[in-house]
Structures are given as C-alpha cells and as structure tokens.
C-alpha cells in the first residue's frame, strides 16, 4: 500500500507532490517555521535528534496501521470485542502504537453506518490513519456532513440504504474515532493480509465502503 514517498494511495489516485522549498523563495510562514524550530533547538527545548525522530514518526503513520487492525477484527471475533472496548490496547496487540489520545472504534452494521468529522477543527485518529486528507479539513466537508450526510457520502460515491441509520460523530473534544467497516461479501477465502488491502483510509472515516473484490 505504500509508494516511493511512503504515503498510502489506496484509491490509486496520485496527487501532486509539492516541490521542496529549496527551489524557490521562502514564504513568510516557511521562514517562521524554520526560525522557530532553530530557536527552540538553540534554547534546548528539544534536540535536533528529538525533532528528527518526531518527523520520522509522523512519516511512519499511515492508514495501513488502521487497515491491519480492521482486518484482524474481521477474522477474529474476540479481537473485535477487545477493539471496541479499548482500541489502543487492541492495536498494541498488533504492534501498533495508537498513542495516548483515546480512540473509539465505531462499528458499521446492517443497521448503522458511521461517519467521522470534526466541525470545530480537524481532530482525526492520526496515529492509526496518518495525517488527514485535505477534504477532511475542508470547509465543505466540515460544514455539510453534519447537516446532509447522505448527500456528502453520495459525493464520495457511497449510498447508504434508507432504512439504515446514518450516525455522524462530531469529534468535538477528547476522543478520536475510527470506523470499523463491514467485511465485504465474497471475501470468505481471503487471508488477513489480503483483507487489509481492501480497507482504505476513507472507509475508516466512513465516507466510503470497502470494495467488494468480485466487483
């Protein structure tokens, strides 16, 4: 699920890579970032080594971690129970460090479809899914998904049956949310690794559903 710059593109949609800043003049805010970073290191508030390790940690987080957790929950009912009770502890069983901000896994069922938003800022389960996509932080998504969730899901190509409850979680405070999608039909013979490949970032936010491999 990873490409050359370590970022997962589960939908196969390449997006433009921003050139590094050495090629052009620095913007005011890029200057501010570099100056603040250097001053904090000069003052010993953090070391260059701590800074580098933090950057490596940010780069190492991607939706593949969340996908492994979901795939395990699909094949192991007892693991799923533990995941729903304590997401960080269950993720740790797979060697995934989900961090200290509590994450709540919400399960899709034939009766309930969950979707995640943060209308006030951009809270997101970063340690399980990596940095959020641009649309998650956009005015359009944040404004509309709490008021017309079915219309927003339709823009992602997702139609939820009329008799299913669409449940939108607005992460306003201390919890972060991850959606546990339903295992698609026709995947009975698949291995856990194969299943994990069906689990995209967007279906763990609840705006899409995992692909049915027979489609």
């Amino acid at each position: 699920m990873s490409d050359s710059h370590g970022h997962s593109h589960p939908h196969g949609q390449p997006h433009p890579f921003q050139p590094d800043i050495e090629d052009s003049a620095l913007t005011h805010h890029q200057l501010l970032q570099l100056a603040v970073g250097e001053l904090l290191m000069e003052k010993g508030i953090f070391t260059g080594d701590e800074f580098r390790r933090t950057l490596e940690d940010i780069d190492s987080r991607n939706p593949g971690d969340g996908a492994r957790v979901v795939a395990r929950a699909w094949v192991d009912a007892e693991f799923k129970k533990r995941l729903l009770a304590d997401t960080a502890a269950a993720a740790a069983e797979l060697g995934v460090d989900a961090g200290t901000i509590p994450i709540m896994t919400v399960e899709n069922t034939p009766q309930i479809h969950n979707a995640i938003v943060c209308t006030l800022c951009s809270c997101y389960p970063r340690l399980l899914l990596g940095l959020p996509p641009d649309w998650y932080k956009s005015r359009a998504y944040r404004s509309r998904v709490v008021r017309e969730p079915r219309a927003v899901l339709a823009e992602f190509g997702t139609t939820i049956p009329e008799d299913t409850e669409v449940r939108v979680h607005d992460s306003t405070a201390e919890l972060r949310y991850m959606v546990l999608p339903m295992r698609p039909e026709g995947t009975e013979g698949m291995s856990e690794d194969e299943l994990a490949k069906l689990v995209t970032r967007d279906c763990m936010v609840g705006v899409t559903l995992p692909d049915n491999p027979s489609n």
């Binding site: 079915r150 409850e165 669409v166 939108v168 979680h169 607005d170």
Partner: peptide, 18 residues
C-alpha cells in the same frame, strides 16, 4: 437538529459535550 433534514428519521449525530 435540522427542521428541514432531508434524510430518514432514524439518522443521528453523536457529539462530545462537557
């Protein structure tokens, strides 16, 4: 929440509130 909500009546929002 929305008097003009376009979806079915069972749809919900869940929000953290102090």
């Amino acid at each position: 929440v929305w008097p003009d909500y376009a979806g079915p009546p069972q749809d919900t929002l869940q929000v953290e509130v102090y």
